[in-house]
Amino acid sequence: MPLQDAAAFAASLPLARAMREHAWLYPAVETMHIVGFAVLVGAVAMFDLRVLGFGRQLPVCALARHLLPWSAGSMLLVLPTGLLLFLADPAALLANRVFLLKLALIALAGMNALAFHTGPYRGVHAWSARAPGRAVLHALLSLGLWLAVLASGRLIAYF
């Protein structure tokens, strides 16, 4: 099934029609999506800032134990709301370069997180107050990618 056919099928679903036709449904779902992203990016940013050296009195492991559940939980809000927003007009979003950029940035941020957790973070217990250089690079990349995700998400409406 070509992408255009899949988009047309998705747009024909009752849930997609509801997203387009009910005056308050789209704004309510969009608000929940933004709340989820605020929690996700806020938790990630706080952790990344600690890896970069801010708040050194707080152990990295303790902060991770506190923030990881918030990050994971926010994904339970971000993913379904994002899918609902996508269903409202899949053909237009698939043709929107900024939307595609947002998806690519999310994928890169996820790969960066995976590389961090399977790489430098595995030795976190041996870190001194300062994180090793590779961890710092991952944190900088993470902050940049997530800020770009937020910016591109906001810009989708203008392109």
Score class of each variant (00 low, 15 high):
54 F>V: 14
7 A>Y: 11
151 A>F: 10
86 F>Q: 05
59 P>E: 10
87 L>G: 04
41 V>T: 10
150 L>S: 14
127 W>Q: 03
64 A>C: 01
94 L>S: 06
89 D>K: 13
141 L>S: 12
25 L>Y: 00
153 G>V: 02
153 G>P: 03
39 V>M: 13
109 A>K: 13
76 L>E: 05
38 A>P: 02
157 A>R: 15
74 S>L: 04
144 G>S: 03
11 A>C: 06
25 L>F: 09
7 A>M: 09
58 L>P: 01
71 S>W: 14
13 L>F: 05
14 P>K: 09
111 M>C: 14
88 A>Q: 12
155 L>N: 01
118 T>W: 13
85 L>A: 03
1 M>N: 08
69 P>G: 11
105 L>V: 00
119 G>C: 12
113 A>F: 11
82 G>V: 02
138 H>Y: 04
54 F>N: 07
148 A>Q: 06
136 V>I: 14
53 G>S: 09
43 A>Y: 01
13 L>D: 04
7 A>K: 00
113 A>G: 07
122 R>W: 05
150 L>N: 07
152 S>E: 01
56 R>K: 14
159 F>N: 12
17 R>L: 15
43 A>D: 00
32 M>G: 15
20 R>S: 11
131 A>H: 02
136 V>A: 08
81 T>K: 09
21 E>S: 12
67 L>M: 08
28 A>K: 04
29 V>Q: 10
13 L>P: 01
49 L>W: 14
38 A>S: 15
45 A>Q: 02
56 R>W: 07
79 L>M: 12
60 V>C: 06
63 L>A: 08
68 L>F: 10
101 L>I: 02
137 L>N: 06
4 Q>L: 13
125 H>V: 12
151 A>H: 10
144 G>W: 06
49 L>F: 12
104 A>C: 06
73 G>F: 08
20 R>E: 04
138 H>R: 09
75 M>C: 10
37 F>P: 01
158 Y>L: 12
31 T>Y: 11
121 Y>D: 04
147 L>P: 02
18 A>E: 07
115 A>E: 10
71 S>N: 04
89 D>C: 08
116 F>T: 02
38 A>Y: 04
145 L>C: 06
57 Q>H: 12
22 H>M: 14
128 S>H: 13
51 V>Q: 00
87 L>H: 01
91 A>P: 09
132 P>W: 05
143 L>M: 05
59 P>Q: 04
45 A>Y: 09
84 L>A: 15
60 V>R: 04
81 T>P: 03
97 R>W: 03
59 P>T: 08
47 F>Q: 10
142 S>W: 02
65 R>M: 07
107 A>H: 03
4 Q>I: 14
119 G>S: 11
29 V>E: 06
87 L>R: 06
5 D>Q: 15
142 S>C: 05
49 L>V: 10
78 V>R: 12
112 N>W: 05
8 A>M: 11
67 L>P: 03
74 S>V: 03
72 A>K: 11
17 R>S: 09
121 Y>R: 11
124 V>K: 07
111 M>I: 08
78 V>Y: 03
114 L>V: 13
107 A>W: 07
100 L>P: 05
34 I>V: 15
55 G>I: 07
108 L>H: 08
24 W>V: 10
114 L>D: 06
131 A>V: 02
106 I>T: 06
41 V>P: 00
78 V>S: 08
19 M>R: 04
86 F>L: 14
44 V>Y: 01
89 D>S: 13
84 L>M: 15
129 A>S: 14
62 A>C: 08
131 A>M: 03
51 V>W: 00
24 W>R: 10
61 C>E: 11
